[in-house]
């Protein structure tokens, strides 16, 4: 789910930026540091929409760095238990499939795929109904329901955007949110099949 919220952050700035463009420097650094990061509390910061307030700078003794408290508005994305999401299938194996909804990775196990869908191996592994009318494979779009979430609780902190997450199931996405989902319910399942386009 998306939220538009106000967050606050202390920005440390090198003295070389003090001058006419100070404000732009703070903002561009803020965007660089914050956009695309994730915290367990608020979810992923999708975009900063505006900066509300930049507070009084505090000069750090010894280093000359200055800390500015910055209040900014941003759009965040956080998955919840029970939420319905649309996601793109990224990997299919006999255990189930992985799907991605933006930065969120979701695993749907074969327990939570309708019983009439069966796994087919091959170079394009997929789950197919017995009559072949519905097929889930890589790049299919599915609507699913989240039944469990997991965050590696790393609050946005210094330079977190550069560090790699500790836990990354498929090893492809720098995500910190991981969910278990199901498509075994009414109105869930494939919403578009890449082979039929």
């Amino acid at each position: 789910m998306f939220f538009h919220i106000v967050l606050e952050r202390n920005m440390q700035l090198h003295p070389r930026h003090f001058g006419r463009n100070l404000r732009e420097h703070i903002i561009s650094k803020l965007m660089k540091d914050v956009e695309g990061t994730c915290s367990g509390r608020h979810g992923f910061v999708v975009a900063i929409t505006s900066v509300e307030n930049i507070g009084k700078g505090l000069i750090r003794d010894g280093t000359g760095f200055v800390t500015f408290p910055v209040k900014y508005q941003c759009v965040v994305f956080r998955p919840f238990k029970g939420e319905i999401l649309e996601a793109v299938v990224s990997m299919v194996n006999k255990m189930g499939f992985f799907a991605e909804a933006g930065p969120v990775q979701i695993f749907v196990s074969n327990h939570l795929i309708p019983d009439d869908m069966e796994f087919q191996s091959g170079d394009m592994p997929n789950y197919t109904t017995s009559d072949g009318s519905v097929k889930i494979q890589k790049d299919s779009e599915v609507r699913l329901k989240i039944i469990g979430t997991r965050v590696d609780a790393t609050e946005i902190d210094k330079n977190i955007s550069q560090s790699r997450p500790k836990w990354d199931p498929a090893g492809s996405h720098p995500s910190r949110f991981f969910c278990i989902g199901t498509i075994k319910d009414d109105f869930l399942g494939v919403i578009n099949d890449p082979t039929t386009i």
């Binding site: 903002i27 965007m31 929409t49 509300e52 930049i54 507070g55 508005q73």
Partner: peptide
């Protein structure tokens, strides 16, 4: 050094999105 300001700062790309929202 004070940079306090009341009006939201117009930052380049996210500005349009904010307006839209």
């Amino acid at each position: 050094m004070s940079l306090a300001t009341d009006s939201p700062v117009n930052s380049s790309s996210s500005d349009d999105l904010a307006a839209f929202l």
